[in-house]
Design a protein around this nucleic acid. Structure first.
Lengths: 229, 229
DNA sequence: CGACCATTTGATATGGATCAAGCGATGTGG
DNA sequence: CCACATCGCTTGATCCATATCAAATGGTCG
């Protein structure tokens, strides 16, 4: 269920009109098509984009802001599956239902594309089919990397997380993290206290700098690389 | 690199002749095709099937025995990514290289199919394309489940593992585990001692029975389900 | 039988969780 | 424009689950 019921109802109208238009048969490249086929939709900070168990009828692409997917266990523990930044595609499932829930971390705009439209397109265009498969494959690689993070020590996890974020932002070494310490903790399988302490230690050893709690500058890459495994 | 160099050279010949035969265009169902296209290959216990970083030119299907995929971290810690049983497909990568290594847990026979042959087939047959994508999707779901295991307590992990194995074997409640305690530990991110102790506790609480160390009978499913989260 | 390897069991150590308090930034109402 | 509430983050003290170290047991094969 969407907490942002207004947003959903608005989008329903949007998708109803936009998604019917069939893209030209000659066009290739999934990227271009998604832009054409998608309806834009906005979510406020912490608004739910979709919930675990809901039919996975749409695929999403981040236009602005960022998104987290997560699952809450029976006893309340929350595991964050992934963070999605601008340009990232999420919500592409192989089954009928979403296996995780998705929320906007900060106010976010996303493209919403009908899953069935992509599949139909893939039917006629091998290149699109290949790219959809590749998308699932890249997601698989990401999750496997996540597993490797989760078996490491707290420090290795935090450093691994920072390096992962830095690799994605690729702004030399300055990170503006959209997510809270709690989000990071739930992504890494740690507590917020351990994440905070570890960052402090990294700052004290001059590996990173923390101008503000959300801004992190990687000062010593080689040290961080060493600490990450 | 294969430790079983003889096996590899034998198979090279096999694949060279078998994989050239193009299956009839009309045929559907990936399953059937893999049997037709594949060359059979045998591996001794603990023999390497492929190594991390090697070109992922082949896809594999377990005919008999079982297989583990794993990665060894810089400091020697080993993480097992998955166990593959009879009928399971493994080694299907989206990138150029295998991201994990694969070994036979027990003496095993596997079908070996050229990746490029499957891709070529998918090019002409949408149904095959769909099934290859679904295979990657199912793998993704499995790995996401694995992540959820790794954030739980030791007991929850072990119970989760048992239930997962039971679901796959589906022989009411009697499991014949092919893998060692060390394999289980490396799959669950625990030590062999913790796995052993946890099994003992489960036995003492009448949740399971351990006729031998590799044979496990699930005595009380509802108790186990309760303990798994 | 004896050697070897996998597994279990026991004793102790420790990394990260938990419980608790303090601090800084941000926003809101008076 | 300031006082105060709130929220996110940090820091401190203690506890506990699991790792580590060590030894005993059991099962398998020559």
């Amino acid at each position: 269920m969407l907490t942002q019921s207004t947003a959903r109802s608005v989008s329903s109208k949007q998708t109803a009109s936009h998604l019917r238009s069939v893209p030209p048969v000659g066009s290739h490249a999934l990227e271009g098509n998604m832009e054409l086929m998608g309806a834009s939709m906005s979510f406020n900070r912490n608004a739910e984009i979709y919930g675990e168990g809901e039919p996975a009828d749409y695929v999403y692409k981040v236009v602005s802001g960022s998104v987290r997917t997560y699952k809450v266990l029976a006893d309340g523990r929350r595991q964050i599956g992934a963070f999605y930044m601008v340009g990232d595609v999420f919500g592409l499932e192989s089954g009928e239902e979403h296996t995780f829930s998705a929320e906007a971390i900060s106010d976010a705009k996303v493209l919403v594309i009908k899953h069935s439209a992509l599949v139909a397109l893939a039917e006629r265009d091998n290149e699109v089919a290949r790219q959809l498969w590749a998308l699932t494959g890249r997601e698989l690689n990401r999750v496997q990397g996540h597993i490797l993070l989760l078996i490491k020590t707290a420090q290795e996890r935090v450093v691994g997380f920072l390096l992962e974020m830095a690799a994605r932002a690729s702004n030399n070494g300055a990170l503006e993290l959209p997510m809270s310490r709690q989000d990071i903790a739930d992504y890494l399988g740690l507590t917020i206290e351990t994440v905070s302490r570890t960052l402090t230690i990294l700052e004290n050893t001059a590996a990173i700098e923390l101008p503000t709690s959300r801004r992190i500058v990687l000062r010593n890459r080689s040290a961080l690389n060493r600490l990450s495994a």
